[in-house]
Measured scan of single mutants.
Amino acid sequence: NSASGPLPDGWEQAMTQDGEIYYINHKNKTTSWLDPRLDPRFAMNQR
């Protein structure tokens, strides 16, 4: 992992069949290639 600590509440790390890691936001029912622990847009929304 490139980030430390647990994923934010509602997020899950998953892997594609090709072995690529992505992240699932169960609250918004969206997915992201960016780790939410590193995404400044997500961090701003949590303050």
Rank of each mutant, 00 (worst) to 15 (best):
N1G: 07
N1D: 06
N1S: 03
N1Q: 00
N1F: 03
N1K: 09
N1R: 05
N1A: 02
N1H: 00
S2K: 15
S2A: 07
S2P: 04
S2V: 07
S2H: 13
S2G: 08
S2N: 15
S2Q: 13
S2D: 13
S2E: 13
A3S: 12
A3I: 15
A3L: 09
A3P: 07
A3Q: 14
A3E: 11
A3H: 08
A3Y: 14
A3R: 10
A3M: 12
A3D: 12
S4Q: 11
S4P: 04
S4T: 12
S4I: 08
S4H: 05
S4E: 11
S4R: 10
G5F: 12
G5E: 12
G5H: 06
G5A: 10
G5V: 12
G5T: 10
G5C: 08
G5K: 09
P6S: 13
P6H: 07
P6I: 08
P6Q: 10
P6K: 13
P6T: 09
P6R: 14
P6L: 11
P6F: 07
P6Y: 06
L7G: 05
L7S: 05
L7Q: 06
L7I: 08
L7W: 04
L7E: 04
L7F: 14
L7C: 08
L7V: 07
L7T: 06
L7D: 05
L7K: 04
L7M: 14
P8N: 09
P8F: 04
P8M: 07
P8S: 08
P8C: 11
P8A: 06
P8L: 06
P8R: 06
P8H: 07
P8I: 05
P8Y: 05
D9C: 07
D9W: 05
D9A: 08
D9K: 06
D9N: 10
D9Y: 06
D9G: 09
D9T: 09
D9F: 08
D9H: 08
D9S: 09
D9E: 10
G10D: 11
G10S: 07
G10K: 05
G10N: 11
G10E: 08
G10V: 03
G10P: 05
G10C: 06
G10F: 09
G10H: 05
W11Y: 06
W11Q: 01
W11P: 00
W11H: 02
E12D: 05
E12G: 06
E12Y: 05
E12I: 02
E12F: 04
E12W: 02
Q13E: 13
Q13G: 05
Q13F: 04
Q13S: 10
Q13T: 12
Q13N: 05
Q13L: 08
Q13A: 09
Q13P: 08
Q13H: 05
Q13C: 07
Q13Y: 06
Q13W: 05
A14G: 10
A14S: 10
A14Q: 10
A14D: 08
A14P: 00
A14W: 03
A14F: 03
A14R: 10
A14L: 07
A14E: 08
A14H: 08
A14K: 10
M15N: 12
M15T: 15
M15G: 04
M15V: 10
M15D: 03
M15L: 13
M15C: 14
M15Q: 14
M15Y: 12
M15E: 10
M15R: 13
M15H: 11
T16C: 04
T16M: 03
T16A: 07
T16R: 03
T16P: 00
T16S: 10
T16G: 03
T16Q: 02
T16H: 02
T16W: 02
Q17M: 11
Q17I: 11
Q17L: 09
Q17N: 13
Q17W: 05
Q17H: 12
Q17Y: 07
Q17P: 13
Q17R: 10
Q17G: 12
Q17S: 14
Q17K: 13
Q17T: 14
Q17V: 10
D18N: 13
D18Q: 11
D18K: 13
D18F: 06
D18A: 12
D18Y: 08
D18V: 07
D18C: 09
D18H: 11
G19D: 06
G19A: 04
G19R: 06
E20S: 06
E20Y: 03
E20I: 03
E20K: 06
E20F: 02
E20D: 09
I21V: 13
I21H: 09
I21W: 07
I21R: 12
I21M: 08
I21N: 08
I21Y: 08
I21F: 06
I21G: 05
I21E: 08
Y22L: 01
Y22H: 02
Y22N: 01
Y22W: 02
Y22D: 01
Y22M: 01
Y22I: 00
Y22S: 00
Y22Q: 02
Y23A: 00
Y23F: 13
Y23T: 00
Y23E: 00
Y23S: 00
Y23M: 00
Y23L: 00
Y23I: 00
Y23P: 00
I24T: 04
I24M: 08
I24C: 03
I24S: 02
I24K: 04
I24G: 00
I24V: 09
I24N: 03
I24L: 10
N25L: 02
N25S: 11
N25W: 04
N25R: 01
N25Q: 03
N25E: 01
N25Y: 04
N25M: 02
N25I: 00
N25D: 12
N25G: 02
H26W: 06
H26K: 15
H26A: 10
H26P: 09
H26S: 08
H26Q: 11
H26Y: 13
H26E: 14
K27R: 11
K27M: 09
K27N: 10
K27S: 10
K27H: 11
K27E: 11
K27Q: 13
K27I: 05
N28G: 14
N28V: 12
N28H: 07
N28M: 15
N28Y: 15
N28I: 14
N28R: 13
N28D: 12
K29Y: 04
K29P: 02
K29I: 01
K29T: 05
K29L: 04
K29N: 14
K29E: 06
K29Q: 14
K29W: 04
K29D: 03
K29V: 03
K29R: 14
T30I: 15
T30S: 06
T30K: 01
T30C: 15
T30W: 15
T30H: 02
T30P: 00
T30F: 03
T30Q: 15
T30D: 02
T31E: 00
T31A: 06
T31Q: 01
T31D: 00
T31N: 02
T31K: 01
T31Y: 01
T31S: 14
T31M: 01
S32G: 02
S32I: 01
S32K: 01
S32N: 02
S32W: 02
S32T: 15
S32V: 01
W33R: 04
W33G: 02
W33V: 03
W33A: 03
W33H: 04
W33F: 12
W33S: 03
W33N: 05
L34P: 01
L34K: 14
L34Y: 13
L34D: 04
L34T: 07
L34C: 10
L34H: 12
L34A: 09
L34I: 13
L34N: 08
D35V: 03
D35Q: 04
D35A: 04
D35R: 09
D35M: 04
D35L: 03
D35S: 04
D35E: 04
D35N: 11
P36W: 00
P36R: 00
P36A: 00
P36N: 00
P36L: 02
P36Q: 01
P36Y: 00
P36I: 01
P36E: 00
P36C: 00
R37T: 05
R37G: 05
R37I: 01
R37W: 03
R37K: 05
R37H: 03
R37L: 03
R37S: 06
R37V: 03
L38F: 11
L38Y: 10
L38E: 13
L38H: 12
L38I: 13
L38T: 15
L38C: 15
L38M: 12
D39N: 12
D39R: 08
D39M: 15
D39C: 15
D39E: 14
D39H: 15
D39L: 15
D39F: 15
D39K: 13
D39P: 10
D39Y: 13
D39I: 14
P40M: 14
P40D: 15
P40A: 13
P40G: 14
P40H: 12
P40F: 14
P40W: 15
P40Y: 11
R41T: 15
R41C: 15
R41K: 12
R41A: 15
R41D: 14
R41W: 15
R41Q: 15
R41N: 14
R41E: 14
R41Y: 15
R41H: 15
F42V: 14
F42C: 13
F42P: 14
F42Q: 14
F42G: 13
F42W: 11
F42R: 12
F42I: 11
F42M: 11
A43W: 11
A43D: 12
A43V: 12
A43M: 13
A43Y: 06
A43I: 08
M44H: 08
M44L: 10
M44W: 11
M44K: 11
M44I: 12
M44Q: 12
M44T: 13
M44R: 09
N45C: 09
N45D: 07
N45I: 09
N45M: 10
N45E: 08
N45P: 06
N45V: 09
N45H: 09
Q46W: 05
Q46A: 08
Q46L: 08
Q46E: 14
Q46G: 12
Q46T: 10
Q46I: 08
Q46S: 11
Q46M: 10
Q46R: 07
Q46V: 10
Q46D: 15
R47M: 07
R47C: 04
R47P: 05
R47K: 05
R47Y: 09
R47I: 14
R47F: 09
R47A: 09
R47N: 12
R47T: 10
R47E: 09
